[in-house]
């Protein structure tokens, strides 16, 4: 006890402006509090970046010409601008109406890792250049690693008779959504 008091005194002599334990902890608390508050303000600033003032993106819903401008098969005119293939077919058994001719809108995003496949007209298939996934004209996956078919989008007639494609709606075959009448436009 005596030695402890003596050493305590010695320390006090050596450090005349010694900070008390309570004072030190108080300083730490204030310092960390200020730091964390500042960090959170910075974080909020980052969150603000998720909501830009202007979006340079094509609208999700767009008009895609009159149906009679399309030939049977895959049409690529809206691939680069809107990320959609429009397919005209005489029969599409996968949408549950094999007797009807019509059109559907296929997403251009590969269901494996999100690359953009190419339409190989000579081979009648979509083929992804990244890992070799292949899809038939209907969007059905048949080769490579893609685990599910390409997604289809909502397709309907606009008031002026043009085709209206709505990319905010998607229909997945593996969930049984291709039989939804809005995923297939009877012509």
């Amino acid at each position: 006890m005596a030695t402890s008091e003596a050493s305590q005194k010695q320390i006090t002599v050596m450090n005349p402006d010694k900070v008390s334990r309570r004072g030190f902890l108080g300083n730490v608390l204030v310092g960390w509090g200020l730091f964390l508050a500042g960090a959170h303000v910075g974080l909020l600033g980052c969150v603000r970046f998720l909501f830009p003032n202007v979006l340079f993106e094509p609208p999700q819903s767009f008009k895609a010409d009159l149906p009679n401008t399309y030939a049977e098969g895959v049409d690529e005119r809206f691939k680069n601008t809107n990320g959609v293939w429009l397919v005209k077919t005489v029969s599409d058994p996968l949408s549950g109406r094999p007797a009807d001719a019509g059109m559907f809108a296929l997403s251009t995003t590969c269901t494996h890792l999100g690359c953009i496949p190419n339409w190989l007209a000579a081979d009648l298939k979509f083929k992804c250049p990244c890992h070799g996934s292949g899809f038939r004209m209907s969007g059905m996956n048949f080769e490579g690693p893609a685990p599910r078919p390409l997604e289809r989008h909502r397709i309907a007639f606009a008031d002026d008779g043009q085709i209206l494609v709505d990319k905010s709606q998607k229909y997945q075959w593996e969930k049984g959504q291709w039989i939804n009448p809005e995923s297939f436009l009877k012509i």
Partner: peptide, 10 residues
Amino acid sequence: ASGTRAPNPA
């Protein structure tokens, strides 16, 4: 780079 085209092979 383009969001709508991938080089072949990528």
